Amino acid sequence: MEDPIAVALAAPVSSLPIGPYFYEPKYDGHRMVMRRSVGGVRCQSRAGRDSTRSWPDLAAAGMALENGVILDGEAVVFRSGRLDFSAAQSRMASSPARVAALARQHPASYAAFDIIATARHGDVRARPWTERRQLLLEAVGDLGPPIQPVPVTDDPEVALFWYNALRAQGVEGIVAKPAGGSYRAARIWKKLRHSDVVDLVVVGFTGTYRRPRAVVVELPDGRRAMSQRLDARISADVAAHLAQVEPGGLARAAGGEVFTAIRPGLVVEAAAGSTRHAVVTVIRVR
Protein backbone atom coordinates (compact mmCIF):
# COMPACT_ATOMS: atom_id res chain seq x y z
CA MET A 1 0.00 0.00 0.00
CA GLU A 2 1.14 3.54 -0.74
CA ASP A 3 2.91 5.55 1.89
CA PRO A 4 1.81 8.12 2.91
CA ILE A 5 -1.87 7.33 2.58
CA ALA A 6 -4.10 10.05 1.13
CA VAL A 7 -7.02 10.42 3.52
CA ALA A 8 -10.73 10.91 2.90
CA LEU A 9 -12.11 14.34 3.80
CA ALA A 10 -15.46 15.97 4.58
CA ALA A 11 -17.12 18.93 2.87
CA PRO A 12 -18.85 21.52 5.10
CA VAL A 13 -22.64 21.76 4.98
CA SER A 14 -25.09 24.16 6.60
CA SER A 15 -27.63 21.53 7.65
CA LEU A 16 -27.58 17.84 8.50
CA PRO A 17 -27.98 15.73 5.33
CA ILE A 18 -30.86 13.26 5.45
CA GLY A 19 -30.84 9.95 3.60
CA PRO A 20 -28.88 6.71 3.67
CA TYR A 21 -26.27 8.20 6.03
CA PHE A 22 -24.58 7.22 9.24
CA TYR A 23 -23.59 9.97 11.66
CA GLU A 24 -20.58 10.34 13.97
CA PRO A 25 -19.50 13.03 16.43
CA LYS A 26 -16.69 15.19 15.03
CA TYR A 27 -13.90 15.23 17.59
CA ASP A 28 -11.57 18.20 17.96
CA GLY A 29 -8.05 16.84 17.68
CA HIS A 30 -5.42 15.82 15.14
CA ARG A 31 -6.22 13.56 12.20
CA MET A 32 -4.15 10.41 12.39
CA VAL A 33 -3.67 7.28 10.31
CA MET A 34 -2.39 4.48 12.58
CA ARG A 35 -0.45 1.80 10.73
CA ARG A 36 0.51 -1.48 12.42
CA SER A 37 3.28 -3.45 10.74
CA VAL A 38 5.98 -5.96 11.61
CA GLY A 39 8.26 -3.05 12.50
CA GLY A 40 5.82 -1.50 14.99
CA VAL A 41 3.28 1.32 14.76
CA ARG A 42 3.59 4.39 12.59
CA CYS A 43 1.36 7.45 13.01
CA GLN A 44 0.68 9.65 9.98
CA SER A 45 -0.80 13.15 9.95
CA ARG A 46 -3.49 14.35 7.56
CA ALA A 47 -0.76 15.96 5.44
CA GLY A 48 1.14 12.66 5.22
CA ARG A 49 3.92 13.47 7.69
CA ASP A 50 5.22 10.95 10.22
CA SER A 51 3.79 12.09 13.56
CA THR A 52 4.71 9.02 15.63
CA ARG A 53 7.07 10.90 17.92
CA SER A 54 4.24 13.24 18.93
CA TRP A 55 2.01 10.37 20.07
CA PRO A 56 4.23 7.76 21.80
CA ASP A 57 1.38 6.68 24.09
CA LEU A 58 -0.91 5.95 21.14
CA ALA A 59 1.86 4.23 19.19
CA ALA A 60 2.46 1.96 22.18
CA ALA A 61 -1.27 1.19 22.45
CA GLY A 62 -1.38 0.41 18.74
CA MET A 63 0.94 -2.53 19.26
CA ALA A 64 -2.17 -4.44 20.39
CA LEU A 65 -3.53 -4.29 16.84
CA GLU A 66 -3.00 -7.19 14.45
CA ASN A 67 -0.14 -6.83 12.02
CA GLY A 68 -1.43 -5.24 8.81
CA VAL A 69 -4.23 -3.18 10.34
CA ILE A 70 -4.42 0.46 9.21
CA LEU A 71 -6.88 2.75 10.98
CA ASP A 72 -8.09 6.28 10.31
CA GLY A 73 -9.18 8.47 13.19
CA GLU A 74 -8.52 11.41 15.44
CA ALA A 75 -5.87 11.75 18.14
CA VAL A 76 -7.43 13.72 20.98
CA VAL A 77 -6.61 14.87 24.50
CA PHE A 78 -9.20 15.24 27.24
CA ARG A 79 -8.69 17.69 30.09
CA SER A 80 -11.27 18.01 32.86
CA GLY A 81 -13.71 15.95 30.84
CA ARG A 82 -13.46 18.15 27.75
CA LEU A 83 -11.63 17.84 24.45
CA ASP A 84 -8.66 20.20 24.50
CA PHE A 85 -7.35 21.01 21.03
CA SER A 86 -4.52 23.18 22.36
CA ALA A 87 -3.24 20.21 24.39
CA ALA A 88 -3.25 18.07 21.24
CA GLN A 89 -1.55 20.88 19.32
CA SER A 90 1.18 21.08 21.96
CA ARG A 91 2.14 17.50 21.15
CA MET A 92 2.89 18.45 17.54
CA ALA A 93 5.09 21.42 18.42
CA SER A 94 7.13 19.89 21.28
CA SER A 95 10.49 18.15 21.61
CA PRO A 96 10.54 14.40 22.35
CA ALA A 97 11.33 15.05 26.02
CA ARG A 98 8.46 17.52 26.30
CA VAL A 99 6.12 15.15 24.46
CA ALA A 100 6.94 12.39 26.96
CA ALA A 101 6.09 14.72 29.84
CA LEU A 102 2.83 15.79 28.18
CA ALA A 103 1.88 12.15 27.55
CA ARG A 104 2.31 11.38 31.24
CA GLN A 105 0.39 14.46 32.32
CA HIS A 106 -2.43 14.27 29.77
CA PRO A 107 -2.56 10.86 28.01
CA ALA A 108 -4.05 10.88 24.53
CA SER A 109 -6.96 8.88 23.16
CA TYR A 110 -7.55 7.64 19.62
CA ALA A 111 -11.07 7.92 18.20
CA ALA A 112 -11.04 5.41 15.34
CA PHE A 113 -13.66 6.21 12.70
CA ASP A 114 -12.60 4.11 9.70
CA ILE A 115 -10.39 1.22 8.68
CA ILE A 116 -8.19 1.19 5.59
CA ALA A 117 -6.67 -2.30 5.80
CA THR A 118 -7.04 -5.44 7.90
CA ALA A 119 -4.74 -8.35 8.66
CA ARG A 120 -7.02 -10.79 6.87
CA HIS A 121 -8.43 -8.81 3.94
CA GLY A 122 -5.68 -6.30 3.16
CA ASP A 123 -6.85 -3.04 1.56
CA VAL A 124 -10.59 -2.59 2.26
CA ARG A 125 -11.08 0.95 0.97
CA ALA A 126 -13.27 -0.21 -1.94
CA ARG A 127 -15.78 -1.81 0.44
CA PRO A 128 -18.93 0.11 1.49
CA TRP A 129 -18.84 2.04 4.76
CA THR A 130 -21.17 -0.44 6.48
CA GLU A 131 -18.72 -3.30 5.86
CA ARG A 132 -15.75 -1.20 6.92
CA ARG A 133 -17.53 -0.26 10.13
CA GLN A 134 -17.96 -3.93 11.00
CA LEU A 135 -14.29 -4.61 10.22
CA LEU A 136 -13.34 -1.63 12.39
CA LEU A 137 -15.30 -3.03 15.32
CA GLU A 138 -13.63 -6.40 14.86
CA ALA A 139 -10.20 -4.76 14.84
CA VAL A 140 -10.56 -2.43 17.83
CA GLY A 141 -13.83 -3.24 19.58
CA ASP A 142 -12.22 -5.30 22.34
CA LEU A 143 -9.09 -3.22 22.86
CA GLY A 144 -10.59 -0.59 25.13
CA PRO A 145 -9.02 2.80 25.89
CA PRO A 146 -7.09 4.59 24.58
CA ILE A 147 -8.10 3.15 21.17
CA GLN A 148 -11.85 3.09 20.70
CA PRO A 149 -14.32 3.33 17.79
CA VAL A 150 -16.38 6.49 17.58
CA PRO A 151 -20.11 6.13 18.32
CA VAL A 152 -22.38 5.92 15.28
CA THR A 153 -26.10 6.33 14.61
CA ASP A 154 -28.29 6.18 11.52
CA ASP A 155 -30.96 8.29 13.23
CA PRO A 156 -30.74 12.01 12.28
CA GLU A 157 -32.62 12.97 15.45
CA VAL A 158 -29.98 11.28 17.58
CA ALA A 159 -27.28 12.97 15.51
CA LEU A 160 -28.85 16.39 16.14
CA PHE A 161 -29.07 15.60 19.84
CA TRP A 162 -25.34 14.82 19.83
CA TYR A 163 -24.72 18.01 17.87
CA ASN A 164 -26.33 20.10 20.61
CA ALA A 165 -25.60 18.10 23.74
CA LEU A 166 -21.93 17.28 23.15
CA ARG A 167 -20.81 20.80 22.33
CA ALA A 168 -19.96 21.40 25.99
CA GLN A 169 -17.51 18.48 25.81
CA GLY A 170 -15.65 20.06 22.90
CA VAL A 171 -17.27 18.06 20.09
CA GLU A 172 -17.12 20.21 16.95
CA GLY A 173 -20.19 18.86 15.22
CA ILE A 174 -21.34 15.85 13.20
CA VAL A 175 -19.85 13.96 10.24
CA ALA A 176 -22.30 12.23 7.88
CA LYS A 177 -21.08 9.26 5.85
CA PRO A 178 -22.95 7.51 3.00
CA ALA A 179 -23.83 3.95 4.03
CA GLY A 180 -22.62 2.49 0.75
CA GLY A 181 -19.67 4.80 0.18
CA SER A 182 -16.13 3.59 -0.41
CA TYR A 183 -13.05 5.25 1.12
CA ARG A 184 -11.42 7.69 -1.30
CA ALA A 185 -8.99 10.60 -1.10
CA ALA A 186 -11.68 13.20 -1.77
CA ARG A 187 -14.36 15.13 0.13
CA ILE A 188 -16.69 12.14 0.26
CA TRP A 189 -18.29 12.91 3.66
CA LYS A 190 -20.31 15.86 4.98
CA LYS A 191 -19.55 17.83 8.16
CA LEU A 192 -21.86 20.08 10.12
CA ARG A 193 -19.85 22.23 12.52
CA HIS A 194 -20.75 24.70 15.22
CA SER A 195 -17.99 27.18 14.50
CA ASP A 196 -18.13 29.46 11.48
CA VAL A 197 -14.74 28.46 10.11
CA VAL A 198 -13.25 27.24 6.86
CA ASP A 199 -10.26 24.95 6.22
CA LEU A 200 -7.63 26.51 3.94
CA VAL A 201 -4.50 25.03 2.39
CA VAL A 202 -1.30 26.98 3.03
CA VAL A 203 0.83 27.58 -0.06
CA GLY A 204 3.42 29.94 1.40
CA PHE A 205 4.46 32.29 4.19
CA THR A 206 6.25 35.53 5.02
CA GLY A 207 8.91 36.01 7.65
CA THR A 208 11.44 33.30 8.46
CA TYR A 209 11.08 29.55 8.78
CA ARG A 210 11.52 29.90 12.54
CA ARG A 211 9.23 32.91 12.93
CA PRO A 212 6.62 33.13 10.16
CA ARG A 213 4.67 36.38 10.26
CA ALA A 214 1.77 35.43 7.96
CA VAL A 215 0.67 32.58 5.71
CA VAL A 216 -0.58 32.63 2.14
CA VAL A 217 -3.63 30.43 1.64
CA GLU A 218 -5.75 29.23 -1.23
CA LEU A 219 -9.32 30.47 -0.81
CA PRO A 220 -12.39 28.37 -1.69
CA ASP A 221 -12.80 30.30 -4.96
CA GLY A 222 -9.20 29.57 -6.01
CA ARG A 223 -7.72 32.96 -5.16
CA ARG A 224 -4.58 33.20 -3.06
CA ALA A 225 -4.55 35.58 -0.14
CA MET A 226 -2.24 36.53 2.69
CA SER A 227 -3.42 36.17 6.25
CA GLN A 228 -3.32 38.82 8.89
CA ARG A 229 -0.29 38.68 11.16
CA LEU A 230 -0.13 35.40 13.08
CA ASP A 231 -0.17 35.47 16.85
CA ALA A 232 2.77 33.90 18.68
CA ARG A 233 1.06 30.54 19.30
CA ILE A 234 -0.06 30.04 15.70
CA SER A 235 3.31 31.24 14.41
CA ALA A 236 5.02 28.56 16.52
CA ASP A 237 2.63 25.89 15.18
CA VAL A 238 3.33 26.93 11.58
CA ALA A 239 7.08 26.96 12.27
CA ALA A 240 6.88 23.37 13.53
CA HIS A 241 5.48 22.36 10.14
CA LEU A 242 7.97 24.46 8.18
CA ALA A 243 10.85 22.70 9.93
CA GLN A 244 9.87 19.56 8.00
CA VAL A 245 9.49 21.03 4.49
CA GLU A 246 12.04 21.71 1.79
CA PRO A 247 12.96 25.35 1.10
CA GLY A 248 10.86 26.89 -1.66
CA GLY A 249 11.20 29.76 -4.07
CA LEU A 250 9.67 33.22 -4.00
CA ALA A 251 6.21 34.03 -5.37
CA ARG A 252 3.68 36.84 -5.27
CA ALA A 253 0.18 36.90 -3.80
CA ALA A 254 -2.76 38.52 -5.62
CA GLY A 255 -2.04 41.78 -3.80
CA GLY A 256 1.58 41.78 -4.95
CA GLU A 257 3.11 40.68 -1.64
CA VAL A 258 6.25 38.55 -1.97
CA PHE A 259 6.22 35.28 -0.03
CA THR A 260 8.12 32.00 0.26
CA ALA A 261 6.21 29.23 -1.51
CA ILE A 262 5.84 25.76 0.03
CA ARG A 263 4.35 22.52 -1.17
CA PRO A 264 0.67 22.25 -0.08
CA GLY A 265 0.20 20.07 2.98
CA LEU A 266 -0.35 22.41 5.89
CA VAL A 267 -4.01 23.24 6.60
CA VAL A 268 -5.28 26.08 8.80
CA GLU A 269 -8.69 27.07 10.06
CA ALA A 270 -9.75 30.65 9.34
CA ALA A 271 -12.81 32.69 10.26
CA ALA A 272 -15.17 32.09 7.36
CA GLY A 273 -16.30 35.72 7.11
CA SER A 274 -12.72 36.90 6.91
CA THR A 275 -12.18 35.22 3.53
CA ARG A 276 -14.90 37.15 1.73
CA HIS A 277 -12.64 40.14 1.13
CA ALA A 278 -9.41 38.12 1.24
CA VAL A 279 -8.45 39.43 4.67
CA VAL A 280 -7.82 36.04 6.25
CA THR A 281 -7.87 35.62 10.02
CA VAL A 282 -6.19 32.33 10.96
CA ILE A 283 -7.66 30.73 14.06
CA ARG A 284 -5.41 27.68 14.35
CA VAL A 285 -3.39 25.05 12.52
CA ARG A 286 -5.18 21.80 11.79
Rank of each mutant, 00 (worst) to 15 (best):
T130S: 12
L219R: 07
S195P: 00
I262F: 03
R79W: 06
P96I: 01
V217I: 00
T52V: 00
R263M: 10
F85P: 04
P107Q: 03
L136H: 06
A103V: 09
R120F: 05
R263T: 10
V215W: 03
N67M: 05
V171Q: 11
I115M: 09
V268Y: 03
Y27F: 15
R125Q: 10
D72S: 11
S90A: 15
Y163G: 08
R31M: 06
L136W: 04
P107G: 13
R120E: 14
L219Q: 08
L266R: 04
V38G: 12
L166F: 13
V203M: 05
V245G: 06
D3N: 13
P146S: 07
G222P: 00
V158K: 09
V38A: 15
V216A: 08
V69M: 10
A176G: 15
M32C: 11
R79M: 06
S109G: 14
V201C: 15
V152K: 06
F205K: 12
F205V: 13
I115H: 09
I115V: 15
L137N: 05
I116Y: 09
R104H: 11
A251N: 04
A179F: 01
A225I: 01
Y110E: 03
M92P: 01
K191F: 05
D231I: 04
R286C: 01
I18Y: 15
V33P: 05
R229I: 03
W129D: 02
S227A: 03
A278N: 06
E74S: 12
A165P: 02
V197C: 07
T260I: 11
A232C: 08
V76C: 05
